[in-house]
Structures are given as C-alpha cells and as structure tokens.
Design a protein around this nucleic acid. Structure first.
Ligand SMILES: [Mn+2]
Ligand SMILES: [Mn+2]
Ligand SMILES: [Zn+2]
Ligand SMILES: [Zn+2]
Lengths: 159, 159
DNA sequence: TTCTTATTCGCACGACTTGCTAATTAGGTT
DNA sequence: AACCTAATTAGCAAGTCGTGCGAATAAGAA
C-alpha cells in the first residue's frame, strides 16, 4: 500500500474525496504487518476517532482492495484479514493464537504442479501452519492445565 | 477417508451409531474429489434421502474431521469445502468458476521459510490460483459480452 | 420387547459482511 | 464567503454460513 500522502493524491485523481475517516484508515493500515480484521482495525480507529462506523471501515478496505492497494487473506473460518503488504510474500499462521506473520519463501519458483495442464496459473500462495514461541511456552507450562485464551485465540478456536 | 465399510467398523468401535444418514454421507464423500460444500453435499444427499437435514450433514462432516477422516479447506470468503483426500496434496482454484482441483506439487520439501525461527512449523499448504480451460474458452468467446454464470461462479463472485 | 442413550432435525441465534438510504460533507463554482 | 452537488458516512436491516439447543426419534444392547 502507498503512503497516506500518495493515497491522497491517488484518491483525488480518481474523483474520490479525502475524508478524515479515510485518512485515519490510511495511517492505520500503512506499513501495518499485523494482518488485522475489519473489527480490530475498527477498534483502533475508534480510539482515535470515536463515532467512526464499522461500515466505513469495511467500505474503505474494499475500495483499497479494488484499487490494488491491499489484499484479502482468508485463512480458517474466521474473519477476513487485510494485508497492505504487496511484496511477493507468504504467511505463517499460529494454530494456537491465530496470529499471522509475513514470511519470505525461497523455492516457490521451483514448485511444479502436476496434472493441471488445463489450468492457466496466475498466482501461488503458500501458508505454513505452526505454533509460535509464545504459545509453545504456554503449552510447556500447562501440560494439562487449560490456560487463558487471548481474543485472537478465542476467535481461532470458535471457528 | 476410509471406505464406508471401514468407517462402519470405526464408528461401532467408538460407540457411535450407524445411521442411514451417516451411511449415505459416507458413500457420497468416499473418493469424492469435488471438494463439496456442506450445502452441495446436502443437495446430493437429499436426492437420495428426502428429509435428511442440513444440520446432520454439518454434524457428520464435523465428526469425520474430528476422527481425522477428512479436512476442511477454506479458500476465499465462501463456504468451507470438505476434502476426504488425506494424501499429501495441494489445490488449484479457478478464480472464475470457483472449482477446486487436486494437484500434487513437486518441490515443497525445498520450500524454505525465511525469518520465522520462532515458529515450529507443522504443515504447509500451497494454493495455485488460475483459470480452468472451460472458463478460458468462455473468455475467448465473449470478450466483452457477459456470459451466464454457473452456481459456482455466482458463489465465488458474490463473495 | 424393552431400555438407554446417541442421533436427528428444526429453529433460534451468533459471527461476519453487505444492501439500502437519509443525513452529512468534501471540494469545486460563483 | 456563500453555494451546489455528487460522494460519503453511519446505522440498521438483511443475507450467508455455521452452531447451540432441546424435543422427538431410533440404534443397538440387554
Ligand atoms: Mn502479509
Ligand atoms: Mn483435495
Ligand atoms: Zn501463537
Ligand atoms: Zn473455471
């Protein structure tokens, strides 16, 4: 995703208006590597702009996606995650707490799909599933003791 | 997923009952490479057993997943797809009609994630995005003419 | 056949996202 | 500075997908 300033120019050149809501969301998403959901972004936005609506967050994220400024990530059955990182990269998901981390992958060019001669391939996505160090520790401590789940974990599990 | 006969034995050995609904779903899923949604499976089941409920389809798919007999596939924002194929394989998605095809991938062992030393990786999934030959033809015909969309396309697009 | 308990099924409900629209506002025009 | 008008916002209804719940039913053992 471009910088808030660059986006401002892009918006104006497309006849779109530059509202305070949009400017705030540009800031919150620019360089954001947390892969937030619309709800979590809405929470952050509300802290700085009480009254902003969840509907506007969804609308802005959708228009940024249409403009090619960010991508959607759908993993598991929970909410869609939004990613302003347009570099060629992939993801690792902690199956315990649900966090998504960026990861560069060496070797994707060597991936050879077999048996789909009738498909024109445009893109490849790689998703690693694992457990992050924090969750690994939690597991070590409580072998059988259930430990408190973070909101992210709740979400992941409720899926 | 095991054969309906093998599943019957597995179910009994676990104190689960063998109902007509379950037996039908075992048949419909065994060797099924269509990656159906719960709804589409429900439609097929209803043809042979009018009155079976969608709730039962979901319940049976969930219990088969718990038993490790099938996996869930979440791609895009639509419904979860169910896959009885337990072999080490990956998927290709037609971004036009939404169909999912199995694909074996050479080179996954050589994939090297960079920058996640603090993760314990358990699994890797590769998803190719492309256009199937059927959709490719449709595109060629109607360069600018909208062509009728199949249910799968509708679903994919409505996302 | 009887009994116990798992299962089915329908409906309500929850999570997530979009459709709709009246009120508001950005930003160009006079 | 006041005005105009199309774009945007916000809130609520509605749609999709999946699950919780409980009364009725049925599998399978006794
Ligand atoms: Mn990313
Ligand atoms: Mn498959
Ligand atoms: Zn974790
Ligand atoms: Zn296709």
């Amino acid at each position: 995703m471009q910088t808030p300033t660059e986006l401002a120019a892009a918006y104006r050149s497309q006849g779109r208006k530059l509202t305070p809501q949009r400017q705030l969301l540009f800031q919150l998403m620019h360089g954001n590597d947390k892969h937030p959901t619309a709800e979590s972004l809405f929470a952050e936005a509300t802290a700085q702009m009480p009254g902003i609506s969840l509907r506007t967050v969804y609308q802005t994220l959708n228009e940024l996606a249409e403009m090619g400024e960010l991508q959607f990530i759908d993993i598991g059955g929970g909410a869609t995650r939004f990613d302003p990182n347009l570099d060629d990269h992939h993801h690792v998901v902690c199956v315990d707490c649900g966090q998504i981390r960026d990861v560069h992958v060496n070797g994707t060019a060597a991936l050879k799909p077999v048996g789909i001669e009738d498909f024109t391939i445009n893109d490849v996505g790689v998703v690693f599933q694992g457990v992050c160090s924090t969750c690994e520790k939690s597991r070590a401590k409580s072998h059988k003791t259930a430990h408190a789940k973070s909101p992210a974990q709740q979400a992941k599990i409720s899926k």
